[in-house]
Design a protein around this nucleic acid. Structure first.
Lengths: 205, 205
DNA sequence: GCACAAATTCAAGTACTGTTGAATTTTTGA
DNA sequence: TCAAAAATTCAACAGTACTTGAATTTGTGC
């Protein structure tokens, strides 16, 4: 429906003059299109058109749509160490604040497009859901939980994940105002206490 | 991929004996299939097969896949009054608790299938996103907010929505354990304080 | 009873998608 | 300088999905 009307740019056939990095162009275009329409909605032709190359290049460079998705979206260069470092440098009392700020900063930047693509692809690509779970729960949150010494770490991790994912959905996918346009610090102030309570506070009412 | 291998049930051609309500059967089947695979993943043939009729009936009764989706998922008979009543009967101090419990109860029941279908379809159907926003923000939360007398009602509504959506994603879509299998009251105890603070508490840190 | 309307299935039509092999141009190495 | 390799586009294939019109059966009013 929103299919961007395949405009073959009428490029000349054959090898291009040096300088063009079509592989990188495809990766960037892929993140954009996957973020906008999800895995199924995104067509190889639309991605190639945005990258300014032919659709066959997807197969040539990534072996197909799956490979492109895996490289562009699943293999997100998400630096776990960065998150954990910024999270564990202060005491456990500021963990919640640091988590919220780190994710928002990360997602507001260019790298966040891959996360939107991930969320938008959850329904049709099981790998996307697996990546989200693995990344968020298995790696980030369990690592964080191990520093708090709290009880019921699994439930606490899941609660944190629910608020993080919900925040991402509201800000980037659903774009609910004024949350979508709010300053990072405004959201940190509002959401960090939630995260902190889920991490170390009372969750029994 | 998970396409349930079109088994045309080899029904006899022509008008069926009275008693069969294919329209209702299609609606129910549609909610199920849409919930499982999202809008794009769901095929008209799979829905028709589950309903025990031919795929052409979708066009005959609903004008096509879009119409079926609109009727089965977007036009959810969601009784707003029920939510608002159970939410406003107690004082404003228990609003958060009531909201969380109401949504969980509703979604755990059969009627919630439409909501899962909604979330699973957000990626490829803009209308699904509009419905979610309209339902959650415009109707439920603004109505609730009007009873609290708090400041910054828009931001508070958006924060509530983020936790509600995140809770739904974690429990029904991503199925993160142990949150996915937890008792409703366990989650109410854990999440209600968040909701209550977003509604009437301090959100400035 | 009988003709007409409604409901249903069947088969084909049309559109679109990912993929592949041939053709063509540029780069690279000896 | 020249041949081989790499990169790119083009055209076509196979698969699948939604849709549509004809054929067929059942229900309904007179």
């Amino acid at each position: 429906m929103t299919t961007a009307k395949d405009d073959s740019p009428a490029r000349r056939r054959g090898r291009r003059p040096a300088g063009d990095d079509t592989k990188a162009a495809l990766l960037e275009a892929a993140r954009g299109v996957f973020a906008e329409t999800g895995y199924d909605g995104a067509t190889v032709r639309a991605i190639a058109a945005r990258a300014g190359v032919d659709a066959a290049m997807v197969n040539h460079w990534f072996g197909g749509k799956e490979g492109l998705f895996a490289t562009a979206v699943l293999n997100v260069p998400f630096n776990l160490d960065e998150v954990l470092e910024s999270v564990t440098v202060d005491g456990p009392d500021r963990l919640g604040e640091n988590i919220v700020r780190t994710f928002l900063t990360r997602w507001d930047g260019a790298g966040g497009e891959a996360f939107v693509a991930l969320i938008r692809s959850i329904t049709t690509k099981p790998e996307a859901l697996g990546t989200l779970k693995n990344l968020l729960i298995s790696k980030v949150l369990t690592a964080v939980m191990s520093t708090t010494g709290s009880d019921r770490t699994e439930l606490r991790s899941a609660l944190c994940a629910s608020q993080i994912v919900g925040m991402g959905m509201a800000r980037y996918v659903a774009q609910i105002e004024p949350l979508a346009s709010a300053d990072i610090e405004t959201l940190v102030a509002a959401i960090a206490p939630t995260m902190q309570r889920y991490l170390t506070g009372d969750i029994d009412g």
